[in-house]
Computed example of a mutant assay.
Amino acid sequence: MIISSSNIISILLILATSALLIITGLKKRPGIGILGSIIIISITLWLRGQNLNAIGFSLPENWGATILLGLIYGCVLYLLSTVFIDPFSEKLTKTSHDYSSFSSIRGNWKAYIQTLVMVWIFVATIEEGLYRGFLMTEVSNIVGADLYGTIFNIIFTSIVFGLSHAYQNRCGILSTASIGILFGCIFVICGFNVWVAIFAHGFLDTIALGSIFLGKENYIHQKIWNRG
């Protein structure tokens, strides 16, 4: 690997963005990290003369297929998260996921819809564009896109993704990092195009929030693990 000036800049961008996201996550101020990262990305793309296509936002040829694939992935990720990832992370860290911040949507369809709008815009779209679109693309520029480079890329960005959600406590860090690995795999499978990952993320959160709205956030877990 040749360390060129562009590689050095990519490394600095990766380190600066990752540090910002992790520190603000640990300080329970994730919004500041997201906003700061958006500013960094915007300036970077402007200086490079690039647009959002450079970080995976090229429009898909078939929106219907993209949305359907995102829905399928989102449902699978929800089941994996509910049945395996969340229970495992809670058992390993001896902490519990805290859903109290979403208590306002319980039985309140207006609050549920409002939250969904915020989630699709500020969580699904921006987070996938940031962690997968920008960070994974920059890391790929450094380590390459071969098997080992891709594995490193997915693991590194997923660790950043998990630590930047430190405000969700230790089990939240572990479960978010695990989900980040799956989102990273989706991003790679889709040729570094971020749209399927965005829809998968959005549908995952839509289903999860819907379970809270209905008061059934623990229903699947209890049915599977508390039988008998």
Results as ranks from 00 to 15, higher is better:
75 C>E: 09
28 K>M: 13
50 Q>G: 03
216 K>A: 07
59 L>N: 05
7 N>V: 14
155 I>C: 04
62 N>L: 03
189 I>V: 14
23 I>F: 14
99 Y>G: 00
124 A>G: 10
112 Y>E: 06
56 G>V: 13
7 N>F: 09
159 I>V: 15
3 I>V: 15
143 V>N: 08
227 R>G: 14
94 K>M: 11
74 G>H: 04
73 Y>I: 00
58 S>T: 12
194 V>G: 02
35 L>T: 10
184 G>C: 00
227 R>M: 05
185 C>V: 14
205 D>K: 04
178 S>P: 02
116 L>S: 08
46 W>D: 15
6 S>H: 07
42 S>D: 02
33 G>R: 06
197 A>D: 01
228 G>D: 12
59 L>K: 12
220 I>C: 05
206 T>D: 04
139 V>I: 15
77 L>I: 10
76 V>K: 00
78 Y>F: 08
149 G>T: 08
30 P>F: 10
103 S>I: 11
155 I>W: 07
11 I>C: 10
67 I>K: 09
50 Q>F: 06
13 L>S: 12
117 V>S: 12
189 I>Q: 03
184 G>I: 06
168 Q>P: 04
115 T>K: 05
174 L>T: 00
166 A>M: 06
191 G>H: 08
114 Q>M: 12
44 T>R: 08
217 E>W: 02
166 A>F: 15
207 I>V: 13
161 F>A: 02
166 A>L: 04
182 L>A: 07
206 T>P: 08
2 I>M: 09
158 S>N: 09
19 A>R: 11
221 H>P: 06
202 G>A: 11
121 I>E: 14
216 K>E: 09
72 I>E: 07
54 A>N: 06
147 L>C: 02
141 N>M: 03
147 L>N: 09
144 G>F: 03
227 R>L: 03
168 Q>W: 05
1 M>F: 10
59 L>A: 15
67 I>Q: 00
227 R>A: 14
43 I>L: 15
1 M>R: 13
26 L>R: 05
45 L>E: 00
73 Y>Q: 08
69 L>S: 12
152 F>I: 07
76 V>T: 13
171 C>S: 12
227 R>D: 09
104 S>K: 14
126 I>S: 04
131 Y>S: 08
160 V>S: 05
19 A>E: 04
86 D>Q: 09
183 F>T: 01
209 L>R: 02
209 L>G: 10
42 S>T: 14
227 R>C: 08
38 I>K: 09
102 F>Y: 15
7 N>D: 14
71 L>E: 03
212 I>A: 00
84 F>A: 12
135 L>W: 06
63 W>G: 11
25 G>M: 04
63 W>N: 06
27 K>L: 15
222 Q>P: 04
217 E>C: 05
155 I>G: 06
115 T>R: 04
111 A>I: 00
160 V>H: 05
20 L>S: 11
110 K>G: 12
114 Q>V: 11
187 F>G: 00
77 L>E: 03
59 L>R: 10
158 S>K: 03
121 I>A: 13
126 I>E: 10
70 G>A: 07
167 Y>W: 11
193 N>A: 13
176 T>H: 02
140 S>C: 02
200 A>T: 02
